[in-house]
Design a binder for these strands. Structure first.
Lengths: 218, 218, 218, 218
DNA sequence: TATGAATGAGAGTTCATTCAT
DNA sequence: GATGAATGAACTCTCATTCAT
């Protein structure tokens, strides 16, 4: 229906959208995009609503019109993070079959790809986890749930691998899974902070080898 | 009760220091200690000068009397971080001899020990790096130098190891060193955030194995 | 009772008006009704245009379409207040003849009846007088005129009564009339705020006796 | 100790107080005084913290330094209201003996005197009651308690008088007491809004006669 | 040595209002 | 006839900082 309308009005001006629905979508997209970039580079608290609005070519009021509060902007971004990064990774692991090595491989590959394509969303979850840790905020809870979903899937895979004798068993599953996650998160942050100095292919490969060599029993 | 204690512990009264010099030192110590804990748990920006002062049993004015600014409190803590964590690790690597494996081992052990004993200082450097990243602040510069000293030492060791054929050479030294640092930092943060759920021995060991198995050529 | 009225007014469908004129009238009626209730319970400034609109099942824009401004909504309500409460009371006094006691009685009865039937409109005038007092607003002027009309009629009656020797004369007419008005207003507000705890008949009677016994010479 | 100091430093400058304690007291006094005037003339919500501060020759920050929130400024004023107007009136009634007429007389006289001397505090309670009515605010509760104390004392006196046959008994005690309070409150507001037009002596006398003649049985 | 009063810049948020559709 | 996007001014509140004492 919507696409039909677009087909008719061929050279639709995308900067000043014709319909209200389009305008709404465009504004929300602009605001979320700028907020994502700003939250990552400056942190949530150090970013002002005014900055987000101005970066999107709007005013503060527009942010509150669409999101009601600054916290809701972050929440909307976390919804996307779940959808674009957490869920795909868990799905990739699930569809990799029963073999723990395949699952770990799926995890590592999925995160590698996301790290290349959706870096910012994953980074957001990691950085906000640190910023909101211990705040008692509702967002802290949300972030914990988000990360826990991935960590749970990882821990389960690690345990299965240990039971089957393919993953190193002298270390507790919880601790091993935690170090994997730590490496994963650490690489995201490092890549973000030093990315321009590094070769992406090499960096991603090193990350994968670390996880694999560190986890698989020899 | 209090006076009784005072009578016993002759002139070393730490609660009510006899001399001005001691009082000065005690106040500074209290302020820095509380600031360290608060910066880590809440972040720098989210921590108010008032909170620091109150936690130390003083008032805001005292913070400004001793440190002139909030930023200086952090700088003082970063001085200690360098002294207590960065410098010892670099020294340990230096005194490990020429063998790259020994040096890497020294790095990994040193960080392991620090992770157990001076966690907070190292954590401070890592968390503040994230918080100040891209701020253009003078502190950002200071943090970069701090971390760079450790990363430079690590990169040099990695390069030597690659040249001698003992470290995996198919990945650039810069990228390999970065993943090591990423794992290191990631483990600090993970330990800080989930420490109570994890067995420290296992976690530290997993960290060491990750770094070793991921770095050494097979 | 209400459905009976509807049965008489045959095809007056108030929920989905057939003609635009009817729709217009229905929307205006809904908006004014909700605004009246909200201004009384929350005050003018504490009531938002959005609240009024939502309560009437419309959006903010509709309020501005019909009334141009929030102030105009109040002005429209004050027009009705004059028509439904002030004017009838003055008319009742006028048609009570020349006898001051009859006139006072007409005032007191009229206000008693209005207090039972049109409480909200009279209350609006009283509460808004307090809220806008000293604001320098145009509405303040409007409210002053509204109340002055009633107070003038009352003062004149009091003066006549004093001259004829039927009302107590040791107190100035202005002051006596003011205390009558004060009692009147006070009772409206008290009834509004505590109405559910009180017996209306008794309360209204006490009001009438206060005014009469306090005014008539013994 | 403090008075001793004052005695020594004879011509103490009261505009720029010497000691911090004096400065604190002076600032608080100025802020509360201006807040009282503004809350009465403009209402609580229509008064900004900035206005209060400026009127007292200070800045917004000072208000928050002393009171932590705008609501606390009002609460502090309500404490004074209780102390200066409610409590004295109840005390006057209590010390008037057992005779209901004496008690009513004490109430009416006390309120008359307060109306002349502490008008603003009593007015504050009355106006804020209207403004906060139905807000669900903590302050609403506080105001209800405040007024209830006076109303309870009044109702009890009315009941006793009715039982002894000296007050008119054909009207419920609750309703009679409510009309007395309504008259009382109405007169405060009327006096405040029209005071400059009226003779205070006459107005106060009219108020007293209204209450007495309306209450006492003939 | 340390306090407490006070400031001023700026944050998040609300809301009456406008206007294209 | 009515909507929904967007604005801009104003509001409450926070906080690093200064300074007289």
């Amino acid at each position: 229906m919507d696409s039909h309308t677009e087909n008719i009005a061929e050279n639709v001006d995308r900067e000043r959208p014709a319909t209200k629905r389009e305008q709404r979508a465009a504004s929300i997209e602009a605001l979320l995009g700028e907020a994502l970039a700003l939250f990552i580079t400056q942190g949530y608290h150090a970013t002002t609503v005014e900055e987000i609005a101005q970066a999107a070519g709007l005013t503060k009021g527009a942010v509150y019109f669409y999101f009601k509060s600054k916290a809701n902007v972050l929440k909307a971004l976390l919804d996307r993070t779940e959808e674009l990064t957490i869920a795909p990774t868990i799905a990739a692991m699930a569809s990799a079959g029963e073999d723990p090595e395949d699952r770990l491989s799926a995890f590592v590959r999925s995160q590698s790809v996301i790290g290349a394509e959706k870096t910012e969303y994953m980074l957001l979850a990691i950085l906000m986890s640190a910023e909101f840790n211990g705040s008692g905020d509702e967002i802290e809870q949300r972030l914990n749930e988000l990360m826990a979903r991935m960590e749970d899937a990882l821990r389960e895979t690690v345990m299965t691998g240990q039971q089957k004798g393919v993953f190193r068993a002298e270390i507790g599953a919880d601790e091993l899974a935690s170090v994997i996650m730590a490496t994963n998160k650490g690489c995201y942050v490092e890549w973000y902070m030093r990315g321009s100095d590094l070769k992406g292919q090499d960096f991603a490969r090193a990350f994968r080898e670390f996880v694999f060599d560190g986890t698989v029993a020899r």
